[in-house]
Structures are given as C-alpha cells and as structure tokens.
Design a protein around this nucleic acid. Structure first.
Lengths: 209, 209
DNA sequence: TACTGTGAAATATTTCACAGCA
DNA sequence: TGCTGTGAAATATTTCACAGTA
C-alpha cells in the first residue's frame, strides 16, 4: 500500500506482469489467478501478490484478478498509461533497431526525433523519425515536451550526449552505451549494456555440466 | 572462495567490473583500489571485494589490484577468456544490430551463422555471417561447435526456435523476444526484453519531482 | 470453496568494521 | 600506512502460512 521505496526488482516484475497480461488479454482471457500469472512469469505467486500489495488491492478473494483491470492498474502504476515522447541519440545499427521497433510505439514510447553526427545519416527519415545533426538538439527539443532520451552512441560519446540531454531538461535516460553515465540525482539513468548479457549467458552455460 | 550458489547479481557486477577494467587498461592504468573501481561502477567497495572473494584473492593488501591481472581473473571466472561461437535466429533490425555489433566479436562472442524464414533475407551475408533458412539449422550446427544461441525473432516464433536450439544441443540461450521461454533445467536462458527497460525508465522518471 | 492480501519467518544480499598483511 | 579479505550486523527480499472474504 506504500508509495515509496519500491524495490527496483519489483518495478521490473510489474513490467513483466504487464507483458504477460497483454498476451492473456489478446487470447481473450478474462480472469486469472496469481498462481497462473506468476507461473507464466517464472516467479512465486506470493511474490506477485506482494508486489501488487505495495500499490493497492486489485484482486477479488476466492476469485482472482480481472485481466483487463489488472493490466490497466499496472500500466497506471508504471506510468505507461500515457504517451512518452522520446529522443534518440546515435543512429547506428542499434539506434535503427530501436527506431523500427514498433512494439515500443504501440506501447506509447514514441521517438519524435533522432540525432547523429554522421553527415550521411543526417536528413534521413527512419520509420517516420527525422535524423537531425546533434547541434540542432536545443531547438528541436524546444518544440517537443520530451522527458526521456535514449543513448545508442559509441561509449566515447555517451557522457557528452547525456550532459546535453540533461542540460535541456531530459529527466529519464536509457543508456545502451557500455559505460556508466554520471548524472545529478534528479535525473534517472537506466543502463543496458548488451555485452553484459552475453557474459552472463557464457558464465551460466559453462557451469552447466 | 566458494564455487557454487553465486548470486546472479554478482555475475552481473563481475561483467560490469570487467568493462570498467577494460577502460582503465586502455588508459594505461596499472593499479587500482577497490574504492576507485567500485566508484566507477556505481557500487560499494565492500561489495566489490565481497563479489571477488567468492572466487579467490586477487589483490594485495595495502596496495590494491593489478588492472590487467584482475581483468584476466574476472574473464576466466566469467568464461569470457575463450571464444564463444554463436548462432542467431531472426535477422530483423535487432538481429542486424547484433550481427554488426563489433564489440561482441572483439570479446570472443562470434556469430557463425544466422537464420531466418524470410526468403529475402536468406542467402544474404551480414558482417561476414551467412543467413540460412531456418530448416537448414540441423546441418549447419553440425559443422560448428555452437553452445550459445540468440533469439531475435518476434515473440510468436521464439518458443519454436528455442525448442529447435535445445534439440540440437545448444545449452545457453539469450532471448530478446518479449516472451518467457520454457526450457529444461540443463539449459540456461537469459531473457532480455527491451520494452521492459523503457517501462522502468518511465516509472522512475514520473516519480522524480 | 478457492482465492487474495499480508504479517511473520526464512533467506539472501549489502554494508560495516576491523584483523591481517605488504 | 593503506590497502584487501571477511566474519558479523544490518538491511532487503522472498516465501510461508493463514486470516479474510466473495
């Protein structure tokens, strides 16, 4: 029921539950138990109920949860019941993949502009998103109420781009460059270094037999 | 000093330390304290020392750690001191980004073959990797001692691809499709759903002020 | 009856704080 | 002296187990 000090891992799992609920909803399922939803997500059912209990009571005892209602509640909790206009820095292969990832736009995460320093990329339009020169960042974001910025540049450019983002009022940064970003406390940075995922798979694969 | 029941989060942090050490090494730094390395990675220095202590003693009291030696130790622990030939299923935008991600190959994670069901993609060569029809999977992997498979297909194809991987002896799977893969216990699956990262950023961004 | 919601117990992880050593 | 390595304490997270209720 609380509203602060939510474990980061709980936020992660709420997003996981939302994904699963979207699938169940698409299948036309109307009602679900914590047991069934938890199994689908690979967690313990008490954990799922505890995660939800930080935010309220969404089920019916003896019955379960309404799939559409619970999804709506979780989206409201996560803040994904709204549109999140975003900007992208770095239109390399990963940046291209993000611009073309339609699932993101379907969920309200929509890129309104992309930026690069490569002359060959500036001026291109990718999946309806225009690629600007990085120097144009200031006036482009003035046109758009952007809160989230995504970094898909090489590591060497990441901090500089983050500083530019922060200077222009961006509050949430998703950083795919393999380097830790320094940032003030009133800015949120989520790091996602893909190479680390491969390291983890290697570690656990080697220990198998 | 133990060798089993390593917290998953410790494995993650070891990879983080390796990335930072690579940067320090590139800068020519020879010696580092747990304090400095921990700060660079955003963790507590006791945590870093504890993480390492699961695997041995790698420092010198009163002095610190040798940057190249510690990096070598961590890579040996992670199993990234060797080559990991891999296969990719799904040559969409994300698959393309992975095939072109040279940092991966530099670290020994090398795609030896890619697979797709789209006629237009089959037969193409991307960053020296040939794209085969998915039906050819069996005989292609017979040629290569592949342990790790990467799934970058749509969610609807992911389980089918995973089953094919597992049937042909793949032991470690990195799944980028936004769906949980069912798998036997002697196979490792690491899930990475990019949409969840965006949800997390949205959650924390909204709570800021 | 068949579930949820949640204190309390169990477990896991992080941090402290200091002994040990180059 | 200035660091690492590590038990022990503190904290966080997960799971149990059962009261509550449609």
């Amino acid at each position: 029921m609380s509203d602060f000090k939510i474990p980061g891992i709980t936020v992660y799992r709420l997003a996981l539950y939302a994904r699963a609920l979207e699938r169940f909803l698409a299948e036309g399922k109307d009602l679900i138990s914590s047991e069934e939803l938890a199994r689908e997500c690979g967690v313990n059912s008490a954990q799922l109920r505890k995660d939800l209990s930080y935010f309220g009571q969404f089920g019916v005892r003896g019955v379960g949860y309404s799939v559409p209602a619970l999804l709506k509640h979780i989206k409201r909790i996560l803040g994904t019941d709204r549109e999140w206009p975003m900007v992208l820095a770095g239109v390399g292969h990963l940046g291209m993949a993000l611009l073309n990832y339609d699932l993101l736009a379907q969920r309200g995460f929509r890129f309104v502009a992309a930026f690069d320093v490569d002359e060959k990329k500036i001026g291109r339009v990718i999946n309806d998103v225009y690629v600007y020169a990085l120097e144009q960042f200031g006036w482009v974001v003035k046109e758009h109420p952007v809160k989230i910025g995504v970094i898909a540049t090489p590591a060497s450019a990441a901090q500089e781009v983050a500083d530019l983002f922060i200077e222009h009022g961006i509050k949430g940064i998703l950083n795919f460059a393999p380097v830790r970003i320094k940032h003030p406390k009133n800015v949120v940075v989520e790091h996602s270094d893909l190479t680390i995922l491969f390291d983890k798979v290697a570690f656990y694969t080697r220990r198998l037999d």
